[in-house]
Simulated assay, not measured.
Amino acid sequence: MAKESWASSAGVRASMRSNRSRDTKPELALRSAVHALGLRYRVAARPLPEIRRTADLVFTRAKVAVFLDGCFWHGCPEHHTKAATNAGFWADKVNTNRDRDRNTDKRLSEAGWQSIRIWEHQDPKQAALEIAAAVRVRRPASGS
């Protein structure tokens, strides 16, 4: 017997399945702004290979992991909207995502990494400046 879908309708299921996990417009804008500042990074990489958590931008030498969080999926205090249909499911999903985000930040910190969380609505140029400052402070001095 097939498991019942979490989606309230076939249309909702198709829409949710088509959501991209990477290369979204906000992510591309952020990557472009960071790149314009002369920084290079890995895209959609696991900072800690032993845990299944993927950061949007990873600066391996500086040990900085950047997560671009969607307002709906991660419960942005300014822009999160409650789902009209299947509200309980989506509230649980967002709470689970928030718990996982906190756990990820904690585990990265314990391993000597800095997590930076950027909301999708934030200005990419301002966010890039924040990221650049963190990377430059943490980047190891190159031997000359």
Rank of each mutant, 00 (worst) to 15 (best):
M1F: 05
E4Q: 14
S5P: 14
S8W: 11
S9P: 12
S9E: 07
G11F: 08
A14N: 13
S15I: 01
M16H: 06
R17F: 10
R17K: 14
S18G: 15
S18D: 13
S18N: 15
S18Q: 13
S18K: 11
S21C: 07
S21G: 15
R22W: 08
T24L: 04
T24I: 12
K25L: 09
K25F: 05
P26E: 09
P26K: 12
E27G: 02
A29S: 14
R31P: 01
R31H: 11
S32E: 14
S32K: 15
V34L: 11
L37V: 07
L37G: 03
G38Y: 11
R40Y: 11
R42E: 15
R42Q: 15
V43K: 12
A44F: 12
R46S: 09
P47D: 10
E50H: 14
I51M: 15
I51K: 08
R52L: 05
R53K: 11
T54M: 12
D56C: 04
D56W: 00
T60L: 11
R61W: 07
K63D: 06
F67A: 08
D69R: 01
C71T: 02
F72D: 00
F72C: 02
H74F: 09
H74T: 06
G75Y: 03
G75Q: 05
C76I: 03
P77H: 12
E78V: 06
E78G: 01
H79N: 05
H80I: 01
H80N: 06
T81G: 06
A83T: 03
T85G: 06
T85E: 14
A87R: 12
A87S: 14
A87L: 04
A87M: 04
A87C: 03
G88V: 10
G88P: 09
G88L: 05
F89G: 04
A91K: 08
A91I: 09
D92I: 04
D92N: 14
K93P: 03
K93V: 05
V94F: 04
N95H: 09
N95T: 08
N95G: 09
N95F: 03
N97W: 05
D99H: 13
R100M: 04
D101V: 07
N103F: 03
N103P: 02
N103K: 09
T104P: 00
K106P: 00
R107C: 05
R107Q: 11
L108Y: 08
S109C: 08
A111S: 13
I116H: 01
R117A: 03
I118T: 02
I118K: 00
E120A: 03
E120S: 08
Q122Y: 06
Q122C: 09
P124G: 04
K125P: 00
Q126R: 12
A127S: 15
L129A: 14
E130Q: 13
E130M: 07
A132F: 07
A133Q: 10
V135E: 00
R138A: 11
R139N: 08
S142C: 03
S144V: 00
S144P: 00
